[in-house]
Simulated assay, not measured.
Amino acid sequence: MNKLSKKELKKLRKLKKDYQIFSIKLVMAGDTRTGKSCALIRYCENIFEKFNPSTIGVDFKSCIINIENMTVKLLIWDTDGNDQQRKTVGNYFQGCAGIFLFYNSSNRRSFENLEEWLNEIRERQIHSGAIKILIGGWSDNEDDKVVSTEEGRFFANVNGFIFIEVSSLTGKNVENMFVCMGRAVLRNLAAGFVNVGIKSNGISLVGEPRQHKN
Rank of each mutant, 00 (worst) to 15 (best):
Met1Ala: 05
Lys3Pro: 04
Ser5Leu: 03
Ser5Cys: 04
Asp18Leu: 11
Ile21Ala: 12
Phe22His: 15
Ile24Gln: 13
Ile24Gly: 03
Lys25Trp: 03
Val27His: 04
Gly30Arg: 05
Asp31Gly: 00
Arg33Asn: 14
Thr34Lys: 08
Lys36Asn: 09
Ser37Asn: 06
Tyr43His: 12
Glu45Cys: 05
Glu45His: 10
Glu49Thr: 04
Thr55Met: 06
Thr55Gln: 08
Asp59Ala: 12
Lys61Trp: 00
Cys63Glu: 13
Met70Cys: 14
Met70Lys: 09
Val72Asn: 13
Leu74Cys: 06
Trp77Gln: 14
Asp78Arg: 02
Asp78His: 03
Gln84Ser: 14
Thr88Tyr: 06
Gly90Gln: 08
Tyr92Ala: 13
Gln94Leu: 08
Gln94Glu: 13
Gln94Ser: 13
Phe102Ser: 06
Tyr103Thr: 00
Ser106Phe: 01
Leu114Lys: 01
Trp117Lys: 06
Asn119Tyr: 07
Glu123Pro: 00
His127Phe: 04
Gly129Leu: 04
Ala130Ser: 14
Gly136Gln: 08
Gly137Asn: 12
Ser139Thr: 14
Asp140Gly: 02
Gly152Gln: 12
Phe154Pro: 05
Asn157Tyr: 05
Asn159Arg: 01
Gly160Lys: 03
Phe163Asp: 13
Val166Tyr: 07
Ser167Trp: 10
Ser168Val: 01
Thr170Glu: 07
Asn173Ser: 00
Val174Tyr: 04
Val174Cys: 05
Glu175Pro: 01
Met177Cys: 10
Val179Lys: 06
Met181Arg: 08
Arg183Asp: 00
Ala184Gly: 07
Ala191Ser: 14
Gly192Ser: 01
Val196Met: 00
Gly197Phe: 10
Gly197Pro: 10
Ser200Lys: 11
Gly202Pro: 11
Gly202His: 10
Ile203Leu: 09
Ile203Met: 02
Ser204Cys: 08
Arg210Leu: 07
